[in-house]
Design a binder for these strands. Structure first.
Lengths: 170, 170
DNA sequence: CTTGGAAAGTCAACAAGGCTGACATAAACT
DNA sequence: AGTTTATGTCAGCCTTGTTGACTTTCCAAG
């Protein structure tokens, strides 16, 4: 009864201690605190341009696969078109993103970063990468492999598909 | 010259391939997609109670260290007192959180979950843990160790302090 | 050629949850 | 007595998410 309440079952003496509720809670809090750090540096930069995190996400994924359609981007970002459109519009007006009419299907809009867009993207991703690089270096390659492995398992399957598309694709 | 533009320096034939910009980008996207999955299950539950992620965070950290002061919680959550107060007020009004005047210092308010609060906390954390547990199990203990190690490096140092307080404390 | 439906854009309204600034109160500290 | 600290609260603003309704464009099937 003492640990039934926490959903734990010790089972036997095997090395399953990493699956205890307490270990899981630590993982959960690590995710929370780390995500804050993860976004902190780009957020500071974005503030100077009076943009938000949503702009960063759009810029990132346009950079990753230039010429992507709006619909594709919607799928990746998991927001409504109205939400994305507001962000895209400001980026287009400000001359950071270019929206070209599709050649085969002229209903589609293909998104590209302009030179100015590339510049901001670089500034943002450099900042974010620099923190990640330091973390990776300190933790070492085996830790990084585990990090990526666990993150991939945490994702929703559809997102894993998006993610793997990138992995294979590039 | 070919990869100077991406900030990479191959240096020598050592195993530093995990530090390339491309690997870092994959880690960044993994964080993004994984965090979405990480919050998805609690978010669904919270919606039924017309609460948001902010309520979850407050509940989580009150559960973790009952009797914590408001100031302490502010420090952990990294939001303004106005923002936290809005959330806390609704939780107190709804009878999920109790705010007790401090015994030594009567200016302080110490926060506790009521029985109803414990119940919701359990529902939320069970949902979140269940995804984490599956991810941990699939990835294995070594991967989990690496996962935690990298996340800890990504955090801001002050947050790492909070995090380690928990690690040691419990 | 017409029409159905998909893709995209737009307008309006709303909510959560951040933020700042100002101000109030009580309690502790000096 | 005066200052600092902890907390709460009001008002207003911003970003970013949501729904719903509607239009325009245009491919493709009938």
């Amino acid at each position: 009864m003492s640990d039934r309440g926490t959903g734990q079952t010790p089972k036997s003496g095997e090395g399953l201690l990493f699956l205890t509720d307490d270990q899981l809670r630590r993982g959960i809090e690590a995710m929370f605190f780390a995500y804050r750090g993860f976004t902190a540096d780009p957020d500071r930069i974005l503030q100077q341009y009076s943009y938000g995190r949503a702009h960063h996400r759009a810029i990132h994924f346009i950079k990753r696969s230039p010429g992507n359609t709006v619909n594709n981007l919607l799928d990746i970002l998991g927001v409504t078109k109205q939400s994305l459109n507001r962000v895209l519009r400001s980026l287009i007006v400000d001359g950071l993103v270019e929206s070209r009419v599709g050649k085969q299907d002229r209903r589609e809009r293909h998104l590209y970063l302009t030179d100015a867009g590339q510049e901001l993207e670089k500034e943002l991703s450099e900042a974010q990468r620099s923190r990640m690089r330091a973390a990776y270096r300190d933790a070492g390659p085996e830790a990084v492999a585990g990090f990526r492995q666990v993150l991939e398992q945490i994702m929703d399957p559809e997102m894993r598909r998006h993610f793997q598309t990138i992995k294979e694709g590039a």
